[in-house]
């Protein structure tokens, strides 16, 4: 089922933002929509978007490849992206990350054994005054968690687990 069929309202809204003769501009919002739908950007979604915007599949793929917030494979339901950039690192982000890895028993870039959360180190998220912090990318979008501690984080993960169960 194509995006246009599944989300007629959203697609219409998105296309309305840009001049019709430049509808290619809608590629990024449409890819977000596709990613929300499938958890990642599938090959079929790329084809679908390409057709909608009259560009080639390769054009779309090269957009997906350029931007880090699009995933072209399914790793996990959630992505916990900890900022370890300079300002956060000056406030203990690296240490925080280390502890987190230790408790989850995985390395940066790896996914928890239950396949729920992938832990990633990312560059500055514009929350430098609230380190340690991370963003949680999930099915229903993306949220910041600031001034975090190890315990608060582990609780959060536990909550995600429970929610995932039912």
């Amino acid at each position: 089922m194509s995006l246009a069929e599944k989300y007629p309202k959203e697609v219409k809204q998105i296309l309305a933002k840009y001049p019709p003769e430049h509808k290619r501009a809608a590629v990024m919002p449409l890819l977000y929509l596709a990613q929300r739908n499938d958890g990642y950007v599938t090959k079929d979604a790329m084809k679908d978007v390409a057709q909608m915007l009259e560009i080639t599949d390769t054009d779309v793929a090269s957009i997906v490849g350029f931007y880090t917030l699009y995933h072209d494979e399914h790793k996990s339901k959630y992505y916990m992206q900890v900022c370890t950039d300079l300002p956060c690192a000056l406030r203990g982000a690296d240490q925080f990350m280390e502890n987190l890895c230790e408790h989850l028993g995985i390395q940066v870039g790896e996914t928890t054994p239950d396949g729920l959360v992938t832990l990633e180190a990312v560059t500055c998220l514009a929350a430098c005054d609230k380190a340690p912090m991370f963003q949680l990318q999930g099915p229903d979008g993306l949220e910041y968690h600031e001034d975090m501690t190890l315990d608060k984080t582990l609780e959060l993960i536990a909550a995600l687990k429970r929610e995932d169960k039912q």
Partner: peptide
Amino acid sequence: GESVLGFDERGRSTQIVSIS
């Protein structure tokens, strides 16, 4: 007029792809 080649990824990992 057939853009069936593109760059994937970015920076030092930039590489040519075609998924046509």
